[in-house]
Amino acid sequence: MNRRHITCTINGDKAEFLCDDDESLLNTLRDELGLTGAKEGCGTGDCGACSVMLNGRLVCSCLVFAPEAEGATIETIEGMADGEHLHPLQTAFLEGAALQCGICTPGVLIAAKALLDRNPEPTESEVRYALAGNLCRCTGYDKIVRSVLDAAAQMKNNLQEGDRL
């Protein structure tokens, strides 16, 4: 069967690729586009390691058919840092040792950013609920949750400093 030609926007850049109709967006991102940040932990929507933003909404890319990307705007972990400049969440995760093997980390960061974008000052319990769809086999979650709260505090500080300048 002919492969389908898809045009979309990924991390702000126009992207084109070929896919099979029954392929998942996750496989396309990884195998066609070389964006291997999103991981396949389960393939069934349970672990969140494949999390990306699709048209501004957090989704499991393993549960999206690749052709659904036509005309869509997609953000992946590869677009999170601004060049060499890490996102405050990424810095907080490094400083807070919020990762061990790192398999869950891209998905956790995308989900955490989705939370902070809509709720810049979440409570601990809001962070835990927002990350309920992201499983981590290594850290025991505490360092992840604390690092998200640290990043939120840091981003608030940055904003206030920006106001003063």
Binding site: G45, G48, S51, R57, L58, V59, C60, L63, V64, A111, A114, L115, A130, A132, G133, N134
Partner: peptide, 9 residues
């Protein structure tokens, strides 16, 4: 229903 990821779909 499910996590935020699932809620969105």
């Amino acid at each position: 229903i499910g996590s935020d990821q699932i809620q969105n779909r």
